[in-house]
Write a protein that binds this DNA or RNA. Structure first.
Length: 480
RNA sequence: CGGGGUGUAGCGCAGCUGGUAGCGCGCUUCGUUCGGGACGAAGAGGUCGUGAGUUCGAGUCUCGCCACCCCGACCA
């Protein structure tokens, strides 16, 4: 019943929260999880916020098939090489062996580009800006609830453009959308940057990402945006006619975030009492716990339900737990475990003094608030403050755990506890060696101006490993 | 795929040198409680993962199989 303390076993602590807060459960299928209502509610909030941001930036939703013919998968060489080992493949249908195997999509570039070929003839058909909310399957060897499961939910944007510049703009626009979402909604500071050659998406020309730090100092790749160049257009022979009559291959991007973000949320903010949810992603932002003593039941419950109406009318996600099956103490612990940002206690004593007790999930602080018309505003301010505080806290933690290192010994020590900022000679060999020796990888080559300034990334220096000249520092860390 | 571990009530576990299964939590009913995981009383719930074998007798011993979890390598 008790959570494993975060400090004694971080992994177990994470799993305990997922299971005990009823976010997800193991299923009877290896590597696949059941997302429970508490977890799915978070996903729905994420979807709503992201979907609105996608629409604002001109995208529309569509849906493509779950199954992809094997021949499609094989059309882009790097792509099939990257994904084939982790694909589930359907060999039979309707009791018959299929003439062509069907891959359960690990990602949809191929099925989408085979379709785009039909839809795109002229520059007038461009850009094509489509997003899909879907499930995908990757037969991972080792799975962890939310962070890596054989089947997961995500969104994948697939866009087609007339010029490389336009595609590039789209890639940057969408990674910026992800950054904003992570910071504004998840209260999660992220580093925006570019992946190295060896870390980029199979089939991409360039991959941009947002990298977040978890409370054990490890990195979690939280979103990616790929510049696919003309790779998929060439693989699927997707050309368009330009204004001056030339035939050219279409430029492509794809970008995605997944239910992994829920894992990021848990690992970034939670504590030994359980989940801590940022108010913007909490369906239940405030829980009212009535305190009933002696014959005050009717009085207190009436007041509680009145408060519920008042707060609800002001757009606050309120939930009244008026069940008499559990004691207040039990309810306090339970809603803290579930991450509800605010708890409002109301008893006969409070009603007498025309006040209530409000407890913050992030700090544990208890505040007395008058029961008047200003209550909804006061609650909203508290919610906004929690949202801000979670971000500030996570950012302070990241700053504390991010250090520039000058020697390889310092480097090795630093990646055991956080992010290491270090010079790199730009070669894949060095990257591979470092990974082999320390398990740390280059999380990204930051592109975020403020981050570059903060750590003076653009100074020249010598590679931490090879000692060869380096033009820029990059971010190294162990990653999930 | 390597290493480790676990399968006994819904969950967490105990069950010794073999003798036909128990504890805590949860669940049901009733009552008393309620400002930090309440208390009492009475109940319900188990082909001991699976298949062989040894034995008069197997949760327990032997061998096989299966499943899942954790740690690594691969990956979002």
């Amino acid at each position: 019943m008790k959570l494993t303390p975060r400090s004694s076993d971080y992994s177990q602590w994470y799993l305990d929260i997922v299971l005990q807060a009823k976010l997800a459960d193991y299923s009877d299928v290896r590597g696949c999880m059941v997302i429970r209502p508490n977890g799915y509610a978070i996903w729905e909030k994420m979807q709503a916020a992201l979907d609105a941001m996608f629409k604002e930036t001109g995208h529309v939703n569509a849906y493509f098939p779950l199954f992809i013919p094997e021949s499609f998968m094989k059309k882009e060489a790097e792509h099939i090489e990257g994904f084939a080992p982790e694909c589930a493949v359907v060999t039979h249908g309707g009791g018959e062996e299929l003439a062509e195997k069907l891959y359960v999509r690990p990602t949809s570039e191929t099925i989408i580009w085979s379709t785009y070929k039909k839809w795109i003839q002229s520059y007038r058909d461009l850009p094509l800006l489509i997003n899909q909310w879907a499930n995908v399957v990757r037969w991972e060897l080792r799975t962890r609830l939310f962070l890596r499961t054989a089947e997961f939910l995500w969104q994948e944007g697939h866009t087609a453009h007339a010029t490389e510049e336009e595609a590039k703009e789209e890639v940057l626009r969408m990674i910026e959308v992800y950054r904003r979402f992570a910071e504004d909604f998840m209260a999660l500071p992220v580093i925006v940057g570019r992946k190295t050659e060896s870390e980029k998406f199979a089939g991409a020309k360039e991959t941009y990402c947002i990298e977040a730090m978890m409370q054990d100092g490890k990195a979690l790749q939280s979103g990616t945006s790929h510049h696919l160049g003309q790779n998929f257009a060439k693989a699927f022979d997707c050309k368009f006619q330009t204004k001056d009559g030339q035939l050219e291959y279409v430029w492509a991007t794809s970008w995605g975030v997944s239910t992994r973000l829920i894992g990021a949320l848990i690992m970034a903010h939670s504590d030994d009492k359980g989940l801590v949810l940022p108010p913007k992603l909490a369906t239940r932002q405030l829980v009212i716990v009535p305190i009933i003593k002696g014959d005050t039941k009717t009085l207190v419950l009436e007041k509680a339900s009145e408060l519920q109406k008042q707060l609800k009318a002001n757009g606050i996600g309120v939930f009244l737990d008026d069940s008499d099956q559990q004691t207040p103490g039990w309810k306090f612990a339970e809603y803290e475990l579930q991450g509800v940002p605010l708890r409002l206690e109301i008893g006969a004593k409070d009603i007498e003094k025309n006040q209530c007790v409000v407890a913050r999930r992030d700090t544990g602080e208890k505040i007395f608030l008058p029961l008047d018309s200003a209550l909804p505003e006061n609650i909203k301010n508290l919610l906004a403050d929690i949202q801000r505080n979670l971000f500030a806290r996570a950012l302070a933690y990241r700053n504390e755990k991010t250090k520039e290192v000058k020697t390889y010994d310092e480097f090795k020590a630093q990646v055991e506890q956080g992010f290491a900022i270090a010079h790199w000679d730009g070669t894949a060999e060095t990257e591979a060696k470092i990974k082999e020796e320390t398990k740390a990888t280059i999380r990204c080559i930051p592109t975020d101006e403020s981050f570059i300034q903060q750590y003076h990334l653009q100074e020249e220096g010598k590679c931490i490993y090879s000692g060869k000249p380096s033009k820029m520092k990059v971010v190294f860390a162990k990653a999930y």
